[in-house]
Design a protein around this nucleic acid. Structure first.
Lengths: 226, 226
DNA sequence: ACCTGAACACCGTTCAAGT
DNA sequence: ACCTGAACACCGTTCAAGT
């Protein structure tokens, strides 16, 4: 029960090493022993900075989220809610591309971290400015971040395809009676996908959902900042 | 390089043991050694049935997906595309609640399994029947299954909240200047969430997206089955 | 044909000790 | 105050052997 005292000074150094390791050799290669070796320490030294491995992984999540929550709404430009929402969404996806092997951690973990709260807050603010009724803000935020996170994770972990076996071969190998719609669609499924465009289109559709939720509330959306 | 011969007979038995173990003690407890012990075998015996641990986990994904792809469109009732799409979505979420500790595997893994293809095919078929243009079917399917999977995973792994620390305390502990929208929303964030209702509302919004995509295509949707 | 046993190179973590 | 060393109870997997 004795709550060990956690030191802070070398945490950034340790997390950088963990992130480097994760991107170079995969998340599975992030072991206490490997991270320690990376910066010339004994595994046990890490326990001065992190309670256990879980805490180190939470730290990694925080490291990623900090890059996302950093900018905040630019103080000068009076950007509207759409721009701010789009910026957060694109920022999250860009983060996934920058750290493809580590990013999926964000979906694995509850992340009740302060950094996560700041990102969510920015989305709440955008939805409020759009005129979404208070009672629907949280649900819409969850819908949007589920899409953004889920899309970005699926892209980088290969769930969306481009696996070792091409779609075409898999489809042709399969019994047409088992997957009739695949056969009806035929070659359109083989066309290369423009992921940027698909993500933007999904976002556009979600913006429409937000607008409808805002419109159904009452008359006019809240004014922008003065 | 010599491709080992993989036996089939006891695979279901092994996968059942792995699933049981995963639900009882968590996905991390699914080790080759623990699964083997569960059915009275030596760890090495499993390698007769699965190439390696990855293959065993893929088998687990297949086990879950089979429950989802099982029913197919009931042969009698001429259900419309909405009902079939909703049935698949609700089925996926129900699966998450039935196997909460194992379900997140579905988002981790590419899953180019035949079972996954059958589920996707059912969604393609529903979207085609709705009148969605061929070129947009795959993107809409990805948007829908990203929402469904992401929502269900977030629900069962705790990403949506209900963590050890209540939202209220976290919000009040945070600096109001750091998370202003949380403070503006105040107590509405503390209201208990009806996850069933929120999921259904999200689905409803996605059905509207589908309808708009279908409407923008051309005149009339495809007819139901004769 | 199916399974076991011993061995190898790894894990996370505790505890006591070093400087 | 910060770190190390030895030890414990685990991993996945290879290889050779048993029946």
């Amino acid at each position: 029960m004795a709550v060990r005292k956690i030191r802070q000074e070398r945490r950034p150094e340790i997390l950088d090493a963990a992130l480097r390791l994760s991107e170079e050799r995969g998340l599975a290669a992030v072991s206490m022993r490997a991270v320690a070796a990376e910066i010339g320490l004994t595994p046990m030294a890490l326990y001065g900075y992190f309670e256990d491995k879980e805490a180190l992984l939470d730290g990694l999540v925080g490291r990623l989220l900090r890059e996302l929550s950093q900018p905040g709404p630019r103080p000068g430009a009076a950007s509207d809610w759409r721009d701010r929402l789009l910026a957060r969404a694109r920022g999250a996806r860009a983060l996934a591309h920058r750290y493809p092997r580590t990013f999926p951690l964000l979906l694995d973990r509850p992340a009740e971290l302060p950094e996560a709260m700041r990102v969510v807050d920015a989305l709440y603010a955008a939805l409020l400015d759009a005129g979404v009724p208070d009672g629907q803000v949280a649900a819409l935020e969850r819908m949007i971040s589920t899409f953004v996170l889920g899309f970005a994770v699926s892209e980088v972990n290969g769930r969306f395809g481009e696996g070792n076996l091409g779609t075409r071969e898999r489809r042709e190998r399969a019994d047409p009676r088992e997957v009739p719609a695949h056969h009806r669609l035929g070659e359109v499924l083989d066309r290369p996908v423009d992921w940027d465009a698909e993500f933007e289109e999904g976002l556009g559709r979600l913006l429409e959902v937000v607008e409808r939720a805002a419109g159904a509330g009452e008359g006019s959306p809240r004014p922008g900042r003065p």
